[in-house]
Design a protein around this nucleic acid. Structure first.
Length: 564
RNA sequence: GCUCCGGUAACUCAGCCUGGAUAGAGUGUCAGCCUUCUAAGCUGAAAGUCGCAGGUUCAAAUCCUGUCCGGGGCACCA
């Protein structure tokens, strides 16, 4: 459609003695901010500069040269220094309707790649918090966007299951736990986290507690069976708890990695690097690499010969690429680790493990409170399960007041609405930016929210259900402005998804889904669909809207509700 | 010190990459709309020195430079 406008412009420009290449014309064409100004606009300032005439006059001249608009456009206007093109919405609508009627769920792609997406990789000593929810929402959405474009995605989760943090929980458990096990209604990760909190509370009062945690770490590393047993037990509780939360969030992993199985590895890779002269052996026997002015120097093996955090990441990367023959590896990790990943990728490239173009740190912003950063030590962390529970309670209350539904249905629906509300809230903000969550204001269900999207979807479904017929039609009658707005917006779906894919940014889809729903709501409020003289056509639009919104929701990892 | 990110309405955010026509949403506030396809909705109003100062340009929230404020990161923590 844009190409047609370019074609027309090229011809008429030539007539006023401006010979421009098509690609140059295409570059200047813009999409007006206001739909009243058309679907495409050609600003005449550059032409004005070239032929030294005023842009208003040029716009008029171009318009005159165009003559009668071709079928693709219902109108072409010269407005001030612009030539505005209005797409023929009837044609566009028919195209869209038939396109989404047949649209398969997945797009075939010739050059599909195998991509690993690693997220959310929690520590196992405490439950998930709001930051993890953002991580998971982004990781899952990105995975789905990649899959939608034809790639094969492997969702991987790396459990940070060893280290001083879990030993702290273990130390407190030994002292206060007395062989307790989680109660029936108690999530395992919360049970473990409870002891982590106890540790932090009492470590100042009780010096032995801290000593004990270090002793446990040492014992664990020596392979002491008692410590290992306790460690295993506590981790398994944590996993059970995490799994419950993942299930609620509708997330599944294809591969689980454990830090405990990786943390010693990678040493050989480093030593090999020393042999090849990529890394330096220091006087104190540690191994380091100099990464230049920007990244500086990085230690890879401690002076006692043990590996550091980045060493295991190097090993894991190698393993991933070998095991899965990956084309790409994405790491969904907070922006506080940008430096770490820059360093890691540089080293991986030096070692020829993976080209830097195959590696990507999908850096996302932190979730902060109005007072600032969430701090687990100060107890200001927003717990993921608590948040879900609180919101679900509110949703349930709403549902009970609105409709008469069986308990089971309320349970099911309220969870979906809750997850939609949370995921949408976390995805709508630009992925890379920090965001503020105000617990006092809680999550709203009105306006720019997940429930609004679900509601719009359910209403579209309800109309189609009530109409009880196919929308086959032969001729399109008159279409009004609201119809046109909806058609124009729906035409953008593909472009939006492509952009989200290119930029690996779900917020673009979230934004679009909301705007689309807004326009749809205006559309069905403005005139009745069933019984309308143009009923079949309008039903076609409703059907197409439903399909497109469903795709968007899927890509955001949000489950649609046929009824709300 | 170096480096990355942010500063747009009372609040939370779009728009900046790719400069253009009156800077957009939502929340909150105020005023309307439920015998009619689900009111988690719709309509309207009030609300903005786009942090500040220069520069580039016919045109700057958008590009460049400087500066202030807030946050993150920077060799044997993860």
């Amino acid at each position: 459609m844009k190409q047609k406008a370019v074609e027309i412009l090229k011809k008429s420009l030539k007539k006023i003695e401006v010979d421009w290449k098509e690609e140059n014309i295409e570059k200047i064409i813009e999409i007006p901010s206001n739909p009243e100004m058309g679907d495409y606009a050609f600003p005449c300032f550059l032409v004005a500069k070239e032929i030294k005439n005023n842009p208003q006059q040029i716009a008029l001249n171009i318009r005159k040269e165009i003559g009668n608009p071709p079928e693709e456009f219902e109108e072409i206007q010269a407005v001030g220094p612009y030539v505005n093109f209005f797409i023929n919405k009837k044609n566009l609508a028919l195209m869209l309707i038939s396109k989404y009627k047949e649209k398969k769920k997945k797009v075939e792609s010739k050059n599909s790649e195998k991509i690993m997406v690693e997220f959310p990789s929690p520590n196992t000593n405490k439950p998930l918090h709001l930051g993890h929810l953002r991580n998971i929402s982004i990781g899952e959405s990105i995975s789905r966007i990649l899959e939608f474009k034809g790639n094969k995605v492997i969702r991987a989760n790396l459990y940070n299951d060893r280290g001083i943090h879990i030993c702290k929980s273990m130390a407190a458990y030994k002292k206060y736990g007395k062989n307790k096990i989680p109660k029936k209604n108690e999530k395992g990760d919360h049970f473990v986290g409870h002891y982590y909190v106890l540790f932090n509370k009492n470590e100042k009062k009780d010096v032995k507690l801290e000593l004990e945690s270090h002793r446990l770490l040492q014992k664990w590393e020596e392979g002491d069976s008692e410590s290992r047993e306790l460690w295993k037990k506590m981790n398994s509780w944590a996993y059970e708890g995490f799994q419950e939360t993942f299930k609620k969030l509708n997330v599944n992993f294809d591969k689980i990695y454990y830090e405990s199985k990786l943390y010693k590895e990678g040493k050989d890779i480093i030593l090999d690097g020393v042999k090849k002269g990529v890394f330096q052996r220091e006087k104190d026997n540690s191994v380091s690499v100099n990464l230049g002015k920007k990244l500086g120097k990085k230690i890879l093996l401690r002076s006692d010969g043990t590996s550091v955090y980045i060493t295991q990441d190097i090993y894991l990367a190698k393993k991933k690429f070998e095991e899965y023959k990956l084309n790409k590896s994405l790491y969904v990790v907070g922006n506080e680790q940008e430096h770490h990943f820059e360093t890691l990728f540089k080293i991986l490239e030096m070692l020829k493990i993976a080209d830097i173009s195959k590696l990507k740190h999908l850096s996302y912003g932190m979730v902060e409170l109005p007072e600032g950063k969430m701090k687990s030590r100060e107890g200001t962390v927003v717990d993921a399960d608590d948040l879900i529970e609180k919101i679900q309670k509110m949703v349930k209350k709403d549902l009970e007041e609105r409709y008469k539904l069986p308990k089971k249905e309320i349970e099911k629906r309220s969870l979906k609405i809750t997850i939609a509300a949370i995921k949408y809230m976390l995805l709508k903000v630009d992925t890379k930016k920090n965001m503020i969550f105000n617990p006092k204001e809680s999550i709203s269900f009105e306006g720019d929210t997940g429930p609004y999207l679900l509601y719009s979807y359910a209403r579209a479904n309800s109309i189609l259900k009530k109409a009880k017929k196919n929308y086959d039609f032969n001729n399109v009658g008159k279409i009004n402005d609201k119809d046109k707005d909806l058609i124009a917006k729906m035409a953008f779906a593909e472009k939006i998804i492509d952009e989200a894919y290119d930029k690996l940014n779900p917020s673009i889809i979230a934004k679009y889904a909301y705007e689309l729903s807004q326009i749809f709501n205006e559309f069905y409020h403005s005139s009745k669909i069933i019984g309308n003289e143009n009923e079949d056509f309008k039903l076609g639009l409703v059907y197409t809207f439903k399909k497109i919104l469903k795709i968007c929701l899927d890509l955001l990892g949000i489950e649609a509700l046929e009824e709300m």
